[in-house]
Design a binder for these strands. Structure first.
Lengths: 344, 344
DNA sequence: ATGAAATGCTAAAACCTTTTATCACTTGAG
DNA sequence: CTCAAGTGATAAAAGGTTTTAGCATTTCAT
């Protein structure tokens, strides 16, 4: 990382001076624009390299009207969902020289407005909105901005571009896994019904069971897992032989409660979680078989869409569903039987 | 968020035109610089407001050599530590119009270099380096940059400015809490000894016990909690009456293992964790009494230091230790006795 | 030999804002 | 009445880059 002798960064003027050409020629040579003699081009490039010249993105952006930066607005301070997605976005964009401003609004409209204004002032090329739940609206109006907006883990208005996990497919993956292992009396213990994701997973669960099945809605968290297990064990038979949980935390509560009641997992009851939140899923005993929402991939896709939009390429509006993946650990027993059944 | 009729953002030229003054006068009026008639000033300001003029930060930054943005480089894709800190940084800076580029390097030197170059090109005013553990070096050389660097949850070279949690004080808080509740045989179960934080907490623990005490080092994670408890319960007496754990995950493993062995918490054994990682601490049964490292505050302090540095104000170099806080939940029993003991 | 086309380079404009130096005009003092 | 000082406004430069239009000069075809 070289700098000029007097501390300022080298400019294209320095390059031109050292190469004995005009600024325009230096620019043309470096960017391969216009007509330039091959010998001159190589000389300029070599000198630029030597004095460590890198173009000032501010000046460049001022002229091109593209700042090569985008803003990411999230209501999440906690990071479970946001950071994997941001990493995906960033990964898709860094190779194109685009950097990401991360703005946590903490659900405060004032903060949201402040951040948005700062972003617009900085001439960001676009904005990605992200939330902790699908059905959460931004705290500021993003619908009339002069720059493209992409929604990640959130659903924007009709005409916008959104990326969300495929909750239907994810839930199906979980239930079919249990079915393939021979379970037939599958119960669904999940979060509050007013979450869109909860409703979708429950609907897919019911569809897999031909409209049958039982869904227990409740608060997020492990406590509800304990509570729900207590209820089903203290009521008349028949008992379920497998439980599909709406979150890993719930699943952990369920498994702990089953153990407290002397039931073994997966021996007496198979359990599937949802989220693949590593700290929960991998530490549960037995480790959780669960559904991964592919948040990093979701972020990557959102980033690529943003890239296209900022380059003026057309992007189909609407909701893109990102496939979930089944992560097999120990809470349903070995998957071997199921796999061979599937592939036959 | 208004725009000019033909879609482009309003510039100061538009304001000047509408107010019937020159561009310089408009600028002077808006910024309160130079000599301006009060009447003119108000008129210009009013018109600027009406057409939604906001100065282009790129143009402004080009001239002032301050982009009002900083870069944050982290090796963390997961977010447990990074996001609260970023939120703190952002919170300290947003009111000053400074936005934060978040760059996750995923421990990849190539990615780190790519991000750093993008940041420098964008003329960021400074860089905050953050890591998942205190004793992790950046994957790129940050020591010879033309802009200030602040280390958050990481220790930079001698002459730099660093912010880290006060592990000594945090550990002391935990042990003194146990002492105040009457416990005397306190065991420390913690992470791998090659972590700086682990060594510090262990040292403070020993100091509190007058050089006595027993430290069990092991891998992070719940499994080690189980394993460690198994060891102490299968060896000769005397048993400890309290356990100070080096992380909430370990504490959770410890508590689960104690329950498996028929011991109650806090009845038979008091347990303190470290991290106040909500998903673990709040969901453990009983909920964990633990140490909060104040990561958001740490980020805020780092942000404020960065602000001073970018404004040319002197900032004392060296390591700043951010105080930890004791969060009392249920795993040590009620705190009432202890509190009154302390205050007497 | 002449006109046309290709080649290599450059001056200048543009992007938007802030600051400096300067101008025209008014007021006050001597 | 004259000179000095003060007032309100502005033209121009600066910041770093890219692009457009144009200038010489050479090459080619006729």
């Amino acid at each position: 990382m070289m700098t000029t002798s007097h501390g300022r960064r080298a400019t294209i003027r320095d390059v031109a001076l050292a190469a004995g050409v005009s600024i325009s020629t230096a620019s043309n040579a470096l960017n391969g624009q216009g007509r330039t003699n091959a010998e001159t081009r190589d000389r300029v490039k070599h000198i630029a390299e030597k004095i460590g010249f890198r173009p000032n993105a501010l000046a460049r952006g001022l002229l091109s009207r593209r700042s090569h930066s985008i803003g990411m607005i999230t209501n999440d301070t906690y990071g479970r969902l946001t950071l994997p997605m941001t990493a995906g976005v960033s990964e898709a964009l860094v190779d194109h020289g685009v950097s990401v401003f991360l703005c946590a609004t903490n659900n405060d409209p004032r903060l949201a407005r402040l951040h948005l204004e700062a972003l617009l002032d900085k001439q960001v090329d676009g904005i990605i909105f992200t939330a902790t739940r699908l059905d959460l609206a931004p705290q500021v109006d993003l619908s009339r901005l002069p720059i493209p907006v992409v929604y990640a883990f959130a659903e924007g208005p009709e005409t916008s571009v959104s990326f969300v996990p495929d909750d239907h497919q994810g839930a199906r993956l979980a239930v079919e896994h249990l079915l393939s292992l021979g379970h037939r009396r599958i119960l669904h213990i999940t979060g509050p019904e007013d979450f869109a994701a909860v409703r979708r997973r429950a609907a897919a669960y019911r569809a897999c069971l031909g409209g049958e099945g039982e869904v227990m809605f409740g608060p997020w968290g492990e406590d509800w897992g304990h509570e729900a297990v207590h209820r089903i064990l203290t009521r008349p038979e028949p008992r379920p032989d497998a439980i599909f949980c709406g979150s890993d935390e719930t699943a952990r509560g369920v498994i702990d409660a089953l153990r407290d009641h002397g039931l073994s997992v997966p021996g007496d009851m198979a359990v599937v979680g949802f989220d693949n939140w590593h700290v929960v899923a991998a530490q549960t005993r037995p480790a959780l078989t669960t559904i991964d929402m592919g948040l990093k991939e979701l972020g990557r896709r959102a980033g690529l869409a943003m890239l296209d939009l900022t380059q003026g390429k057309p992007v189909e509006s609407g909701i893109n569903y990102i496939a979930c993946e089944l992560v097999v650990r120990a809470s349903c027993g070995t998957d071997l039987a199921g796999q061979s059944l599937m592939s036959s």
